[in-house]
Computed example of a mutant assay.
Amino acid sequence: MDIKIKITDREGILHEVLAPTDMAMNLMEIVRSYELAPEGTIGVCGGMAMCASCQCYVNSEHSLPEMSVDEDMMLAEAFHLEENSRLGCQIPIKKELDGLEIKLAPEV
């Protein structure tokens, strides 16, 4: 089953994309697969919560997984931090996230 996610890229352009819920992907991988950020500027650490290059702002009221200690520590060191900041690599694509709205944080 695919869900719809609204992603605003770093240029402010809104993309409505389909994301599969049956492939164990995360939000950072969806952004990369649709090439919504230049190669080498997102998911630099490969999704290990070690670089914050996939930081995004969650603009919808979806219930997300609780933030891990690693994610919390990485965001504490990130630039452009907002109250709704999360690491895309730490948000698994699940059917409950249908309609999720995010904006990619500026490149550091």
Rank of each mutant, 00 (worst) to 15 (best):
Q55S: 03
E11C: 01
E83T: 09
M28A: 02
V58L: 00
M1Q: 10
A19S: 11
L27Y: 03
H15M: 02
L87K: 07
A78T: 14
R32A: 03
D98W: 04
H62D: 03
L75E: 01
E66F: 08
A19G: 10
D2N: 15
A105G: 07
E35S: 15
E71V: 08
C89T: 12
D70F: 06
K95E: 13
I5P: 10
L81I: 13
L75Q: 04
D72H: 11
C45V: 13
G40A: 01
K94L: 14
K4P: 01
L64D: 07
I91F: 03
I13R: 05
I102S: 04
S68A: 07
M28I: 12
A52S: 15
L27V: 14
E11G: 00
G40D: 07
K95Y: 03
I102A: 01
A78R: 09
P92Q: 04
M74K: 07
S53M: 05
N26W: 04
P20E: 06
V69E: 15
K95L: 02
I93Y: 02
H80Y: 15
A24L: 11
M48A: 14
S63W: 00
K94N: 06
L64R: 08
D22A: 08
M74F: 03
H80M: 06
I3N: 10
R32C: 01
R32T: 03
V108R: 11
R86Q: 01
A24D: 15
L75S: 00
D98Q: 11
E35C: 10
Q55R: 13
S85G: 03
M67N: 02
I3A: 00
A78S: 15
G43V: 13
M73L: 13
Y34V: 02
K95R: 12
L81S: 07
M74L: 06
L36Q: 11
Y57E: 00
M48K: 14
